[in-house]
Amino acid sequence: MAGAVSSRSCQKIRGAQIRELLDSKQSVLFDCDGVIWNGEKAVAGATDVVRLLKKRGKNVFFVTNNCTRPREKYVQKFSRLGFADVAQEDIFSSAYCSALYLRDVVKVRGKVFAIGGDGVHSELRDACVSFVEGDADDSGMSIVDCPLEPDVKAVLVGYDDRLTFLKLAKACCYLQNAECHFLATDPDPWHPLRQGRVTPGSGSLTAALETATGRKATVIGKPSRFMFECIASQFGVDPARSLMVGDRLETDILFGANCGMETLLTLTGVSTLQEAQGYVDSDAPDKKDLVPDYVVDSIADLLPLLEEDE
């Protein structure tokens, strides 16, 4: 089963099948929201799963499209929710990877116009990437009379719950320059909130700019390969011996498929087993990479097998 060429059969596994899968992997990559925690509450059993995987010598990484926090605040959240020994270098957020991309791949030689919050701004600052905050004080102005920075060489779009029309208009102006890079932290269209409410995600904001400019953004977060390339370059991780664990088919599971990893869907977040089965039954070839290799109700399903080795 594990280690063989994946059939992406959406197989619900338990017991010895989970053991075989874990034994075949050296690295486990977890999404956070909907997998490790929901809001300010850890998923039941998640703290012990992470602890025991590390105790067994597994590399454990956290890959999240949530760009609202810098990595240091993710470390604080892990600690607050009871996760021990999660280091900053274990965490790969879309904000952090976007900053690396601008610094090391684009090698931007000017300023970045950054739509986003503290997570985006802090990671750009830590990477020594010069940026203009999208929420600079232009109160009372319109795009006709507001000042524009003369040296903007890239536009980066992340989640921004204080988005204004003026921010979008400024980004449109900068992107009229064909040499201005256009990046998005992630493609997530929406995020679940409490009591059944949702909020538009970075992908929605990016889509508005793509429509206005006729340009396509380079996406840094999942399902793009770049986040895995960051991990592989820093830790020498082998995708064939890695498992991607996520709750969203269109980002987490597709990310794993794009990077050559086997994938495990948990049902504690966004996607459902019925949605995954729909992709299994689809005749569209491009839907097959959205099918997880394996499915569990929760990552707590891994716990009995890990506790046996205690």
Rank of each mutant, 00 (worst) to 15 (best):
V105I: 12
V280N: 13
W37V: 10
I13R: 11
L163R: 00
L29A: 04
K287M: 09
G196C: 11
F78N: 02
T199N: 05
T268N: 14
D135I: 01
I231D: 08
L163Q: 02
A240F: 06
P189L: 12
F92E: 02
I13L: 08
A284H: 05
R225Y: 02
K153I: 04
L305Q: 12
V105A: 00
A212M: 13
Q88R: 14
L302I: 14
K55N: 00
S202I: 00
F83T: 09
R8G: 08
P239N: 07
E275T: 14
T263K: 06
K107M: 01
L264Q: 11
A171D: 09
R14P: 00
E179I: 13
Y159D: 09
L175Y: 11
K54C: 08
E262S: 08
K54A: 07
G278S: 08
A95D: 11
T64N: 04
G116F: 12
P304K: 09
V155A: 10
A127T: 06
L249A: 05
D137A: 13
A212P: 07
V35N: 02
T272S: 15
A2Y: 05
L302E: 14
Y101C: 10
D90H: 13
L22S: 10
A46V: 08
P239W: 06
P189Q: 10
R14G: 07
K41F: 13
G119Q: 06
T199F: 07
S271W: 01
C128Q: 15
C259H: 10
S139L: 07
A127D: 00
E89D: 12
L243W: 01
E310T: 09
E262D: 11
D286V: 09
T185I: 03
R8N: 12
R80L: 04
G45T: 11
E89W: 13
A114L: 06
F78T: 01
L306D: 11
E89T: 15
S233W: 02
K287N: 11
W37S: 11
L124V: 06
F165I: 04
V108S: 12
D135A: 08
R215H: 09
T272Y: 07
L102T: 06
P187W: 03
Q274Y: 04
M227G: 03
G196M: 10
